[in-house]
Write a protein that binds this DNA or RNA. Structure first.
Lengths: 144, 144
DNA sequence: CGTCTCGGTGAGACTAAGTATCACTTGGAG
DNA sequence: CTCCAAGTGATACTTAGTCTCACCGAGACG
């Protein structure tokens, strides 16, 4: 089963129609590597601006796509293999994203709940750095 | 020394002028409680839109103001007593913010660096929940 | 004293990202 | 086949912020 079919089924299972416009948006999303903006999708045609935004929102709600917060606080999107809560490490050089399997700060948050008196219910966590490839590439340049 | 004076000195120390417009923006910021948007400041007059944005940016750069990321990914601002890197817990009911003294995930990030092969250089972390007051208030209502 | 220069300013145009409106279209249940 | 709620697209609007550009004004210099 292709990714497109899998996502279509997921939509139908939730009572949403799988229209040509939505197919086009999903196909465009599946073409993207790593993370993308809605603007990246608009160049693919097949659906109007509003529909692209609506479809992204829908896909985000059903967990097919997740939001990636960039260092400048702009929002990007990313196909999410894992439907559940997770975090990302984004390479600031090449843009590669690595998903973290589980929420790495669950323990920290439990501690903070008692330390602050807050009942912590949610969080944003996004990490930035250089992936191993970009690190070795920059070392090579320095050595070169 | 008033907060306004202290901030003025900080600006001057960095070679920036302390103009009437900037004073007005700083005064407006000091009026705010917890976190605010640039729009909240615009109602105070005394400086044009562009200048308010420019001043906020300047104050953010010198650490007088810090950015607070809301759950919907919109940016708010907040007077920062601590110039250095820190995180916030934001009450989703009343908006109260609690600053966390040190970066609570420094250890986690060290672990992740070795686990992922990324050299982690930065991160966004923002926490949301209910503060103790809002919790007891909602318990009172339930019991009421 | 004049004048020059450069940081700062304000009005307003522009941009980016996303939402709202509203008449139109269409998939698919009956 | 018909009908209607879901979906669509054009376009206007909103929000948050940047850019442009003519102008202002305080301090350096002569």
């Amino acid at each position: 089963m292709s990714d497109l079919e899998a996502i279509s089924l997921k939509l139908e299972a939730r009572g949403h129609r799988v229209t040509p416009s939505r197919r086009a948006v999903i196909a465009a999303i599946l073409q993207q590597s790593e993370h993308f903006t809605v603007d990246d999708l608009l160049s693919y045609q097949g659906a109007g601006r509003a529909t692209v935004f609506r479809t992204i929102r829908l896909l985000t709600e059903i967990g097919v796509v997740c939001r990636v917060l960039m260092e400048d606080a702009s929002l990007h999107y990313r196909v999410s293999e894992r439907g559940k809560h997770h975090h990302h490490v984004v390479c600031s050089d090449c843009g590669r994203v690595q998903d973290l399997d589980q929420c790495v700060i669950a323990d920290v948050m439990r501690e903070l709940s008692s330390a602050t008196g807050f009942e912590i219910e949610g969080h944003w966590l996004e990490l930035y750095g250089k992936c191993s490839q970009c690190r070795s590439r920059s070392r090579a340049v320095l050595a070169g």
